[in-house]
Design a protein around this nucleic acid. Structure first.
Lengths: 246, 246
DNA sequence: CTACAACCTGTGATTTTCCTGAGAAACGCA
DNA sequence: TGCGTTTCTCAGGAAAATCACAGGTTGTAG
């Protein structure tokens, strides 16, 4: 089931209307903090654990709809944790967190069962998007929820990564796509450059804050070119997207 | 009976609409785990057993529509297990798992009865495809479900392994065929290189991830050569296939 | 009206990602 | 066993994406 919050955000709900529950497992408190805040902001209920033992215990009583699991835990191997989690919750989808270079060599089968992974350092939008996808496909959320965002005559498909305005297909790069997704998930709402940087770029991004301006510029060229603009600047506050009409 | 899931995937169902039931028997927990995950993702109901005794017991009460059976079990010979299974479930199709160098004459004899086998290490796509075939032919699922995948003017027959585009036959190697099948079972959906590797290559593949790029390249040469391309790269995300039209 | 801050965007360097040719190794089959 | 086919590694090159920098433009406070 999906519902639309007063701010215009669309959020996932379980079939009975209660909020989605997510368990976050990582040994670095800064990471669990970061993720917990971001996921709570989605309207989800979050619990966290710092090791495998805690993860299995918490899973048993919390019964989450999805798990975010760091592959590198102090007390046990990632796959061992996975096995024990599966014994408790056979159908729960898992989003693995893994180091960039670890994904190259050894861990096969991460996506075999419909699970997914992101590499550290990740962007919050990426984690949220993948979690939404996992939850949607697992059937924990209502099936009517689909993967297409619509604002005015602009549509963005999270599965096929296709974007079109007024029926015309538009090619976006990965970063442009994530930025647009973030804007479209918060239509008519002003998002500050800091917010955008925090959500769309990886948490360790150390560059200049004006990349946001740059990418807004790119997006405008592709989305608004020769049309009624949908992306607007609120000087001193940030940016927002809204249907061209109003 | 077949139905189309929210993801656009087509899944097998029994005539009464309930999910297909599959029993997985292997003594290595990592194998039963991997298979259970992958088969559950097909929308099937899975039980697993680690030895012959457990297999027969579980079969008795679970009454699966198909069985995946490792021929090398700790407590009894594969043929013995098969015999006892047959006593419980005379008509259930069995997919044998066997080591590559195992005596294939015995297996060959067994598969005459409509059963099938794959050698370890297998790819998940291969197991799923063969299971689908077995279930379809056994009549446990609706017969109308056929074995031909179609995307645009491209068709792939899972039974005869024939592929053609715009009526013109195309010869593919085994790996190319499995890759194309995976793409075609998920049309218009971006599949990451990791996903492709996990499903199409054997679970013990330890090589470079760029084999995927290589085989995509091979496929393009055969499928898209001189035509409107159907296989598309989403840089930084993966690949997808879709009809040439859109 | 002016001056400043905020924002926009062209240019190009750097990095990342992807494609594909060549050849080695493994495989299948006669 | 020998030969053709298939699979895969390696590496060079092409293409695309990302980002810093800097000069230009616009909005706004005073």
């Amino acid at each position: 089931m999906t519902t639309t919050s007063p701010q215009g955000r669309t959020e996932l709900l379980r079939p009975d209307g209660s909020p989605v529950r997510v368990l976050v497992v990582d040994d670095e408190p800064s990471i669990t903090e970061l993720l917990s805040m971001a996921l709570r902001y989605e309207g989800w209920q979050i619990r966290s654990a710092g090791d495998g033992t805690g993860a299995v215990q918490t899973a048993r009583e919390f019964r989450p709809d999805a798990v975010v699991l760091d592959m590198m835990l102090p007390d046990m191997d990632g796959l061992t944790v996975l096995g024990r989690l599966r014994r408790e919750l056979p159908d729960v989808p898992v989003l693995f967190l893994t180091a960039k270079d670890a994904v190259e060599d050894r861990i096969a089968g991460l996506t075999a069962g419909g699970d997914d992974y992101v590499t550290k350092p990740f962007s919050l939008e990426e984690v949220v998007a993948r979690l939404r996808g996992l939850i949607r496909r697992s059937g924990a959320a209502d099936r009517r929820s689909d993967s297409v965002l619509v604002v005015g005559d602009l549509t963005l498909d999270e599965d096929s990564h296709e974007v079109s305005r007024a029926g015309e297909g538009i090619h976006l790069t990965a970063t442009e796509f994530e930025l647009l997704r973030f804007l479209m998930r918060n239509p008519r709402r002003v998002l500050s450059k800091a917010q955008i940087l925090d959500r769309v770029w990886s948490y360790d991004f150390g560059g200049q804050a004006n990349v946001v301006e740059l990418y807004i510029s790119y997006l405008r060229r592709k989305i608004d070119a020769g049309r009624e603009p949908m992306i607007h600047t609120r000087r001193g506050a940030g940016y927002l997207i809204k249907p061209a009409a109003s």
